[in-house]
Amino acid sequence: MIVRIMGEGQVRLDDSHLPGLNALDDELLDEMEHGDEPGFRRTLAALLDAVRSLGTPLPDDSLEPSELILPAPGATLEEVRELLGEDGFFPTDAAPGASA
């Protein structure tokens, strides 16, 4: 799966990492629903750090289509709400590589 972090670039993630990332995604959704700004900041940073550390960066000149687009680290709650689907960034029922 190719994931883009806005303002940073793309990484290739192995599908085996999706369950752990989905757990962080679920936590982020919960914090957003409850207006927990400190929790939101902490979990967004953890999610982006996990994607960076688990993924393999693609070259800057790579033109791979991104299957997921994640917000920049400084994104606001409102900006993230606009990017999120109903099931978060990592939907549990979507097969890797499937298009919505």
Rank of each mutant, 00 (worst) to 15 (best):
M1T: 10
I2C: 11
R4G: 02
R4F: 02
I5G: 01
I5W: 05
M6S: 11
G7H: 11
G7N: 12
E8R: 13
G9P: 05
G9F: 09
Q10W: 08
V11T: 05
V11S: 04
R12Q: 13
L13C: 14
D14M: 02
D15N: 14
L18H: 11
L18G: 12
G20V: 08
G20R: 15
L21E: 01
L21G: 00
L24N: 03
D26V: 07
E27I: 10
L28R: 06
D30Y: 14
D30W: 07
D30P: 02
E31Q: 15
E31C: 15
E33L: 13
E33W: 07
E33D: 13
H34Q: 09
G35E: 02
D36H: 14
P38M: 10
G39N: 11
R41Q: 04
R41Y: 00
R42P: 00
L44K: 13
A46H: 05
A46E: 08
L47K: 03
L48D: 05
D49Y: 10
A50T: 10
V51C: 05
V51T: 11
V51S: 06
S53L: 12
G55I: 06
G55Y: 02
L58W: 10
P59W: 13
D60S: 14
D60G: 10
D60P: 02
D61S: 14
S62G: 08
L63T: 14
S66N: 11
S66G: 12
S66R: 09
S66C: 10
S66Q: 14
E67C: 05
L68I: 15
L68G: 00
I69H: 01
I69L: 08
P71S: 02
P71K: 03
A72T: 09
P73N: 00
G74I: 00
A75M: 04
A75K: 09
L77D: 01
E78A: 13
E78I: 13
E79V: 02
E79N: 06
V80W: 00
R81N: 03
R81P: 01
R81Y: 00
E82V: 09
E82Y: 04
L83I: 08
L84Q: 06
L84I: 04
L84W: 01
E86V: 05
E86N: 06
G88T: 04
G88I: 04
G88Q: 03
F89M: 12
F90C: 08
F90W: 12
F90T: 07
P91F: 08
T92A: 14
T92D: 13
T92L: 12
T92C: 10
A94Y: 15
A94K: 15
A94Q: 15
A95H: 10
G97P: 00
G97N: 02
A100H: 12
A100W: 12
A100K: 07
